[in-house]
């Protein structure tokens, strides 16, 4: 596991042809994943003149410019949407984590009275989901339409994340919990001082799941927010890039009726991707640590 080229004695020496094929396959896969991001990035850095001269295909910008980014950050729709998305993501992730931790910890005592039925209530929701229409009607009845809360409250706890976290809590050695209890700690103190510090890795992964979910949320916003001034970045992205329209209440540089320039469109895509790219490297090492695989298996 630790030595980079540990080969068991019974395993044949890999053939040269096999190694070349494998290396090629890996190189192609890496290219297929990475290239789209690079293409978007270089288009966002090119001038409109260069984009149209090259027929829309910019592999490397001759004359890189940040003009597109200056335009979208000069205030207006994209800036507003960015603030909305960041706010919903941060507050939503916090709320989801608190609710999920509370419920997962509450359900982690194996012989707890009522624990089994409550867990089943959550588990069953993985088997079915009440479609779009009934969910919409519930959100409407609760008066959540057109509020930012409609982006958070209806998806507050994911049954999957709950089960992953609960399984992790259940596997914390009972001796640790018992000794804390003998020292006089109550259930809440045990959660805060013992259980949470032991679960940092799995908490990080689950927080990433929630944050990505909130950041990318698009359909709920479309469904519940008819007021376009409240739209998060994902919906602005759809309006600008996929529908090629300047949205209502549009900003200075884009207020002409022409569809937004390709460079600006791609800059919006980059703005939507970068936060994920920034957080991902710090959290992905926990995947490889096996936290997740263990959790999924268990």
């Amino acid at each position: 596991m630790t030595a980079p080229t540990a080969r068991p004695a019974w395993l044949e020496r890999p053939s040269l042809a096999g190694r070349i094929v494998k290396a090629l396959a890996v190189a192609i896969i890496l290219t297929l994943v990475v290239y789209p991001f690079l293409a978007v990035l270089s288009t966002s850095l090119a001038t409109q003149g260069e984009i149209s001269r090259k027929g829309g295909l910019v592999i490397w910008p001759d004359d890189p410019t940040l003009e597109a980014y200056r335009t979208i950050f000069s205030g207006g729709v994209v800036t507003k949407a960015l603030v909305v998305s960041i706010g919903v993501t941060v507050l939503g992730t916090l709320a989801s984590m608190v609710a999920t931790i509370m419920m997962a910890y509450g359900l982690s005592r194996k012989d707890m009275i009522g624990g089994r039925p409550i867990l089943l209530v959550a588990l069953f929701t993985m088997l079915f989901s009440a479609g779009i229409i009934p969910n919409f009607l519930v959100v409407k009845q609760l008066g959540l339409l057109n509020s930012y809360a409609s982006l958070v409250v209806p998806v507050l706890v994911s049954a999957f994340n709950l089960v992953v976290l609960r399984n992790f809590f259940v596997n914390i050695p009972q001796e640790l919990i018992d000794s804390a209890r003998i020292d006089g700690a109550g259930d809440l103190a045990i959660l805060v001082r013992l259980v949470l510090p032991l679960s940092k890795a799995v908490l990080a992964v689950i927080a990433l799941f929630y944050a990505v979910e909130y950041w990318n949320a698009f359909f709920h916003a479309l469904l519940y927010l008819s007021d376009t001034s409240k739209w998060p970045l994902a919906l602005i992205l759809r309006a600008y890039v996929l529908q090629g329209q300047p949205t209502t209440g549009s900003m200075n540089a884009m207020s002409d009726s022409l569809p937004p320039q390709e460079g600006i469109q791609m800059a919006v895509v980059i703005v939507a991707v970068v936060p994920i790219l920034l957080v991902y490297p710090f959290l992905q090492r926990y995947f490889t640590k096996g936290v997740l695989t263990g959790a999924i298996k268990g």
Binding site: A39, A217, F218, A234, A272
Partner: peptide, 10 residues
């Protein structure tokens, strides 16, 4: 981790 809006745009 990339959302569908972004993937469809790309």
């Amino acid at each position: 981790f990339i959302g569908w809006v972004i993937i469809v745009s790309i």
